[in-house]
Amino acid sequence: MSRRDQIRMSPPEVRDFLTEQRVINVATMGPNGRPHLTPLWYVPKDGDGDDGVRIETWTYGKSQKVANLRRLAQATLLVESGKDYEELRGVSMETDVELIDDDDRALAIGADLMRRYTLGGPEAEIGEDFLEILRVQATKRTGLVFTPTKIISWDHSKLGGAY
């Protein structure tokens, strides 16, 4: 078995890793042909296909990344962790991107982000005051749904200290 095969995460391990982490780096193609890279909070979701994962987030509708995605609705995502070699873990995804301009759908993504990052989990209830704040924000936001076309993962802890 190759080293590459030894460190690859299974689809459930990928989903668990994405759930544990908090920041995803999103690379889109800028108007000058260079990558435009930005960190975002995100919500991992169950998806279709063998890998069974997709990523949802939102951002300002007038942002550079949205302008880039309107030209080319593709992105590469990276989530990584670890300091020392034997701790390195990560997931890189080439994705197709759906842009969500519908305020209600964007609001649903914003609510999921609030549950994950502010309220402690997907089952948390959002009070009417917070929901109203999110409604106002949703009118200025574009939802982003990233569906992987290719996933590459690594978990160096699987090598057991042997390099």
Results as ranks from 00 to 15, higher is better:
Gln21Glu: 12
Phe17Gln: 02
Arg15Ser: 12
Pro12Arg: 10
Ala27Leu: 08
Val43Ile: 14
Met29Asp: 12
Arg22Glu: 12
Val14Lys: 04
Gly30Arg: 04
Pro44Ile: 06
Glu20Ala: 14
Pro39Leu: 01
Arg15Lys: 14
Asp16Tyr: 11
Val14Pro: 01
Val26Leu: 06
Val26Lys: 01
Gly30Asp: 03
Asn25Gln: 10
Arg15Leu: 14
Leu37Pro: 01
Val43Ala: 05
Asn25Glu: 09
Pro35Gly: 08
Thr19Pro: 07
Trp41Asp: 04
Thr19His: 15
Tyr42Asp: 03
Arg22Thr: 15
Gly33Phe: 06
Val26Ile: 15
Pro31Ala: 14
Thr38Asp: 06
Asn32Val: 01
Leu18Gly: 05
Pro12Asp: 12
Gly30Glu: 00
Arg22Gln: 13
Pro31Leu: 08
Leu18Ser: 06
Tyr42Arg: 05
Pro39Tyr: 03
Gly33Leu: 02
Leu40Thr: 03
Asn25Val: 11
Pro35Phe: 01
Phe17Pro: 02
Arg22Cys: 07
Leu37Ala: 11
Glu13Pro: 12
Val26Asp: 02
Leu18Thr: 02
Gln21Tyr: 06
Thr19Met: 13
Pro31Gly: 07
Val43Phe: 05
Tyr42Ala: 00
Val23Cys: 03
Gln21Lys: 14
Glu13Tyr: 06
Pro35Trp: 06
Val26His: 02
Pro44Thr: 07
Glu13Leu: 03
Arg34Asn: 12
Pro44Gln: 10
Gly33Trp: 03
Gln21Ser: 11
His36Asn: 13
His36Val: 07
Val26Cys: 01
Arg22Met: 14
Thr38Lys: 05
Pro35Asn: 09
Glu13Trp: 01
Arg34Ser: 11
Tyr42Ile: 02
Thr28Gln: 07
Trp41Pro: 01
Leu37Thr: 13
Gly33Ser: 03
Ala27Lys: 05
Phe17Glu: 04
Asn32Asp: 15
Ile24Phe: 04
Pro31Phe: 00
Ala27Trp: 01
Trp41Cys: 05
Gln21Thr: 09
Phe17Ala: 02
Asn25Cys: 10
Asn25Asp: 06
Asn25Ser: 12
Val14Thr: 11
Gln21Ile: 00
Tyr42Pro: 00
Ile24Arg: 02
Pro44Lys: 07
Trp41Ala: 06
Pro31Gln: 09
Pro44His: 08
Leu40Gln: 08
Ala27Met: 07
Pro35Ser: 10
Pro31Asn: 05
Pro31Asp: 10
Asp16Cys: 14
Glu13Gln: 13
Phe17Asp: 02
His36Met: 08
Gly30Tyr: 06
Arg34Tyr: 15
Arg22Lys: 13
Pro12Ser: 14
Met29Glu: 13
Arg34Lys: 12
Thr38His: 04
Thr38Val: 15
Met29Pro: 09
Tyr42Val: 03
Ala27Gly: 09
Pro12Cys: 15
Arg15Met: 13
Pro44Glu: 09
